[in-house]
């Protein structure tokens, strides 16, 4: 095949896929704000995304904070700059690690589950059945997941922030011999509202992306078990990549001067 033709076909395919995804996202958002709303379904999704993901996010951020303190000490002690560890831990956790790690963990746990559930519903004609029962699947299936993703991930990240900083505190005080009051005061003095807010904004965006990719790939799943498997993989991979891209863009937006 002519390389130029192949490049053109790939570009057109990419643009078409981007267009389909954007349309899907816009229709999904429209159904989030236009009645009827399904509080029962939103609540169920919130429990799935928020409550059941709490242990995973808690463990991830706690150990991330602990490792961060340990690694920072290894590097900073060479320059007698151990005093900067509390600020490094609190800023790294709130701005970057907690939202990104939580987002990636949720992409693996929830994005995959959404794609598998919706994909199975698609190939077993349950989504067709919804339409024949005068129920819009975008409103009944997609909108509750998007709302739950956007609202629950910031809550998880807020808890992750606290646990991540606590992990750093544990290692610094009980292993590295820091004074606990000095550690806490340093942490508190260095953190600003913008650091936490930027992390929460990232979390909301990541929650939306995870839910969107899970829903999009599951909803358009084709071809039986193999298609559902492919949809699940695509949902996790695309959500993870989009989280990393969006992380850079939001960081640029908040902190580039």
């Amino acid at each position: 095949m002519n390389p130029l033709r192949a490049l053109g076909a790939a570009s057109l395919g990419f643009l078409a896929a981007t267009g389909r995804l954007t349309t899907f996202a816009l229709v999904g958002i429209q159904h989030c704000v236009r009645p009827p709303i399904y509080p029962r379904l939103i609540g169920r999704q919130m429990i799935d995304i928020g409550y059941y993901s709490l242990p995973v996010v808690a463990m991830t951020t706690l150990f991330a904070g602990m490792v961060l303190a340990l690694q920072s000490y290894t590097g900073f002690s060479r320059f007698a700059a151990e005093g900067a560890i509390p600020s490094v831990v609190v800023l790294s956790i709130t701005r970057e690690l907690s939202p990104v790690l939580a987002g990636l963990m949720i992409a693996g746990r929830i994005g995959a589950a959404m794609a598998a559930e919706l994909g199975t519903m698609r190939v077993t004609e349950q989504i067709d059945a919804l339409e024949t029962l005068s129920t819009n699947p975008m409103k009944y299936l997609i909108a509750p997941r998007l709302i739950a993703g956007v609202t629950m991930l910031p809550l998880l990240v807020l808890i992750g922030d606290i646990l991540g900083v606590f992990g750093g505190y544990l290692v610094s005080v009980y292993k590295l011999g820091f004074n606990e009051q000095v550690y806490l005061i340093n942490s508190w003095n260095f953190v600003e509202a913008q650091d936490i807010v930027s992390g929460l904004v990232k979390a909301a965006v990541f929650g939306f992306l995870v839910a969107l990719m899970g829903c999009y790939h599951g909803f358009h799943s084709r071809g039986g078990a193999q298609g559902v498997g492919a949809a699940t993989t695509n949902a996790v991979v695309s959500a993870s990549i989009l989280i990393l891209i969006a992380n850079y863009l939001i960081t640029e937006l908040f902190f580039a001067t």
Binding site: T120, T124, E125, Q126, D128, A129, T132
Partner: peptide, 10 residues
């Protein structure tokens, strides 16, 4: 509509 495999909501 009765679907081929019933398409019941699990």
């Amino acid at each position: 509509m009765l679907f081929q495999n019933a398409a019941l909501f699990d």
